[in-house]
């Protein structure tokens, strides 16, 4: 086998891109743990580096996706894993369900209305506007919801990541700006608005904030998926 054919064969490409993606992720995680600057956040820096490599090597996204798409499929079992933290936090739900439910509904309604309104104001429409609607919720839920309401799942994945980064940075200022009395509201704010990235920030604020954020991130994701499923069935 000649050398060029070896390096361009699909199997080698798939391995190469997968190893590169996983490798960058592990390196960035280590860097963030060591220095902890906000721009080193794995959520922000890893995708940027991967985009950099893909652009620098002039690889079409299709090729990259064909090699690494199996990682996205693994988000399915991740959704199953959410059952464990929900079960372990069931005491929190039983105790505070009215206010957590109200916060979730307010957050979801605001997310959908403001995305739609701001997008329309700036002249964004069609499937791009629809892809912006589920960006506050966790990726596995958001990609499902995007498909149901007629958006594009891979665009939504990008918006979800940007929302997470912005949300966890904004969270820092919002906690000092808003007159919040309870750990519950700080956790809800981060979990509902900025999914896993917000939940990580909430864990930095405190254990109760972290638990509330983690729980609400899952529940709000489910609420949105069910809403979108009903919407898709009625349409």
């Amino acid at each position: 086998m000649n050398e060029v054919a070896f390096w361009t064969s699909p199997a080698v490409q798939a391995c190469g891109w997968s190893v590169m993606t996983i490798g960058l992720y592990l390196v960035v995680k280590r860097v963030y743990r060591r220095w902890g600057r906000w721009w080193q956040m794995p959520l922000a820096l890893t995708p940027l580096l991967v985009i950099g490599v893909v652009l620098a090597l002039h690889v079409p996204y299709r090729d990259y996706y064909n090699s690494t798409g199996w990682l996205i499929v693994l988000l399915g079992p991740a959704t199953v894993a959410f059952a464990v933290p929900i079960y372990e936090q069931r005491g929190l739900i039983r105790r505070y369900w009215p206010m957590l439910g109200a916060g979730m509904l307010a957050g979801t309604a605001t997310a959908i209305v403001t995305s739609w309104a701001f997008a329309s104001l700036l002249g964004i429409d069609g499937s791009l506007r629809l892809s912006l609607l589920p960006r506050s919720i966790s990726t596995p839920f958001a990609m499902n919801m995007a498909r149901d309401i007629g958006g594009t799942a891979d665009m939504t994945a990008v918006f979800v990541v940007i929302t997470g980064v912005l949300g966890s940075i904004l969270g820092e200022f919002m906690v000092t700006l808003l007159p919040l009395r309870s750990a519950l509201s700080r956790g809800a704010m981060l979990g509902v608005a900025a999914h896993a990235a917000g939940t990580a920030k909430a864990h930095e604020l405190g254990t109760e904030e972290g638990s509330v954020a983690g729980l609400l991130m899952i529940l709000v994701g489910m609420l949105n998926v069910f809403g979108a499923t009903i919407f898709a069935a009625l349409r």
């Binding site: 916060g103 979730m104 403001t114 506050s136 912005l166 809800a188 509902v192």
Partner: peptide, 29 residues
């Protein structure tokens, strides 16, 4: 434009969620 939509939207969701939960919390206390 998309960044602006996401920024403003996230800001609104955070305020709405946090204020709602906090109002309920104060009422309950």
């Amino acid at each position: 434009k998309i960044l602006a939509v996401i920024f403003l939207g996230t800001l609104s969701v955070m305020s709405a969620t946090a204020m709602t939960v906090d109002l309920f919390y104060r009422w309950r206390v």
